[in-house]
Design a protein around this nucleic acid. Structure first.
Lengths: 253, 253
DNA sequence: TAAGATTTGTTCGTATGTATC
DNA sequence: GGATACATACGAACAAATCTT
């Protein structure tokens, strides 16, 4: 398991890191797939000629990166794991803990990516998928009365985009859009509420989502793009009210 | 160090993972910045009431995520580290090891993101930055004679985009573009060469980059967007010749 | 339910390596 | 070079989880 993305050569890699690399190589060489078993601890001790502690540190490294998971007991041991989207998001968010990311930055991307996703999904969604989206829109059919209620509606709206991002064929596009929706959701969860609900903006947002579902079903790709573009402008306006600090929290593994 | 991105609650987190979480919390609570020292091993043993082995596994977890780095010797120990862009790319690439990513997927994104970046950079680049870019364009002023030479030119061209992505204000946009450039570079490095150089496409590509530098300097934002759009179409055509398998390698830590 | 087997989880003592003064 | 302060690594023992019978 190494190669593709070239990392700068480390001069003095510690033994656990080296063992972790060996395990990755071993997995790639044997072409193990998600779910396949790795040798157990004592076998690795023999295999790599290191102590138990070193093997365990190597396994923790791989686990932290989401590449393996480990179970105790008979039939236990470590298996190759698919890196989960949740962990990947967390890892990526850790990077941005040290960068300055603003709401404006996120919306600069959303404004081009979300319409692209919408366009590529037009006419491609199943009945089941469309109804899942409809449910999210219908969760809060009435304008919110309180700031607290508006928060919940905003989160539901982001869940709509999150869901949409899962339906596309392009996994990279889906991941990035989902990542941004996650950041905005967490931001909304923690934000202080001081603004009164903006009924007009909300109304427009909801109408956009309904309209979007319609054109997605019709299969009108360019219309879908347009509707999503307008929708993003509304969403940006709603979000900019809270020119909050962003991603200034550290992330769990 | 936890919070923002909400991960599903794990039922049975092992002690090293718990200790890693505690260390992260400790860092956030004390508001430690990149470079600040963490307690040393024996202090952590007292602090968290666990053994040396457990502390070490916890440290390897944090190290694997790029959050700390460790040095031996007097004055050594662990310090908070800025998560590097290289490691973050590698971590993200690990996720896509298990997904299917095609050249088409990457270009669907490049076609909207690269023009956006170009537009936002128009008129914002320093003389020094422009000359750095110019150097990369000038690296191979002549059409390539061999497939091998074309490979090198292609990589230089990707380095141009990589460099450009570092100059923007939007760190998320920059990261994603840099990530894609990295994938394409690695792909190009490993690709088998069977096509003869396409002089015409190359010529057009180079002219686009020169034109782009020009309009970036002039500060013509919309022109920059347009030029980059055309350039992406060329790049896509060059790349599609090699409908290669992509990101099918595992990544080092 | 209970016992036993299997595999990881955790601790401790000790020794070695490494960088600084 | 020697002393010091720190991480690195090993090995043996025991604890805990989980599966099987």
């Amino acid at each position: 398991m190494d190669g593709s993305i070239s990392e700068p050569v480390k001069t003095k890699r510690s033994r656990p890191v080296l063992v972790a690399d060996e395990i990755k190589e071993w997995v790639v060489k044997k072409d193990l797939k998600s779910g396949d078993k790795l040798p157990n601890e004592s076998e690795m001790i023999d295999l790599f000629g290191v102590s138990k502690g070193t093997v365990r540190e190597a396994l923790r490294i791989l686990e932290a990166q989401g590449l393996i998971s480990t179970k105790t007991g008979p039939g236990g041991g470590s298996i190759v794991a698919k890196v989960s989207v949740e962990r990947t998001r967390a890892l990526l968010a850790n990077y941005f803990y040290f960068q300055d990311l603003s709401i404006a930055d996120i919306y600069q991307m959303r404004k081009v990516l979300e319409p692209e996703l919408a366009a590529s999904l037009a006419g491609k969604l199943s009945k089941e998928q469309l109804s899942q989206l409809k449910q999210l829109v219908d969760k809060y059919p009435q304008p919110s009365k309180s700031a607290e209620e508006e928060r919940e509606q905003h989160i539901a709206s982001l869940a709509f985009h999150q869901k949409l991002s899962e339906f596309g064929e392009n996994k990279l596009l889906g991941f990035i859009i989902g990542f941004m929706a996650q950041i905005l959701t967490d931001l909304t969860l923690y934000k202080r509420l001081y603004e009164p609900p903006n009924v007009k903006l909300w109304q427009e947002g909801r109408e956009h989502q309904l309209k979007l579902l319609e054109v997605l079903q019709d299969g009108n790709s360019e219309k879908a793009r347009k509707v999503m573009q307008s929708h993003m402008l509304i969403a940006e306006a709603l979000m900019h009210k809270q020119e909050a600090e962003i991603v200034r929290r550290f992330i769990a593994e």
